[in-house]
Amino acid sequence: MEKEIKNLREQFKKRLASLETRPELQKIENEYIGRKGLIAQMLKRMSLLSAAEKPKVGQLLNKLKTDLQDALAEKKKELAKGISGEQGYIDITLPGQNFSRGTMHPVELILKETKNIFLGMGFSIVDGPEIELDYYNFEALNIPKDHPARDVQDSFYITPDILLRTQTSPMQVRTMENQSPPVRIVSAGKCFRRDSIDNTHTPMFHQIEGLAVDVDLSLSDLKGVITEFCKQIFGKDRIIRFRPGYFPFVEPGAEVDVSCGLCQGKGCSSCGYSGWLEIMGAGMVHPHVLEMVGYDTEKYTGFAFGMGAERIAMLKYDINDIRLFFENDIRFLTQFK
């Protein structure tokens, strides 16, 4: 057995000298001094030895084990040096240390860009409650109870009078109640509609809403502001189109389309072969809405517009499924640097 110990030691030395990587080292470590390793096996076999031999072989085996451990530790240190070599050689192709910046959620990115564009045009940013009174969400916006327009905004109710807001428009009313004209505000945030989930609907989404009231505002100002916004967010080469639309709290009402970026307006599957993509609703604030907050409708006119942040993001980044925004998959999120 003494001979065996000696051989083992020699064999170990050779193998240790030739190895170059940590996994190899790990392998040898297990092989020799692991729980079921060669030394452990030999220790087991000691029970077969005579009483005279036992102490000596035991001592040898223990010595072998500590020697092997020391040698392994030494080798480990050597391998760890790796990064800079003997002559001070540095592998400059190694990756840099990790300081990678995180990412803003794409919806937040759109909200931020949008707010910045409107801030640049003299708008203020206002925030409001996400759980709203029916009064602000509907009634003050010229959508009384039993109005058919409520059908397309199926709501989550908390009580008969309180609901999750279905649009950011309540902030128009809240702002006008507390401020006399001129008003120029943008409000953005979460909205909720009781829509079944599919690739263009989620029960929660984000809306961006704008309102301007002054003595001299007209449809042409609305067109100017929206055109400027669209150029900034989608790029100068996109064409903007205004056509009549219906929303109970504006009159005249408008829908705004932007030319499809994929087919340059020629028509493709992503624009339903129309060449145009619907991006927002807008219009001149309905006199009923202004009257409800006590504004003089003979003196003041205003315009309002609203759009979905997810929709803008989907069009801008060519995302085909709205559900991706709320799955928060890191592989998705990290694309929006």
Binding site: G102, M104, E108, F156, F192, P203, M204, F326, N328
Partner: peptide, 8 residues
């Protein structure tokens, strides 16, 4: 990385 989850 910023995430946005449902409020419900």
């Amino acid at each position: 990385n910023q995430i946005i989850n449902y409020s419900m």
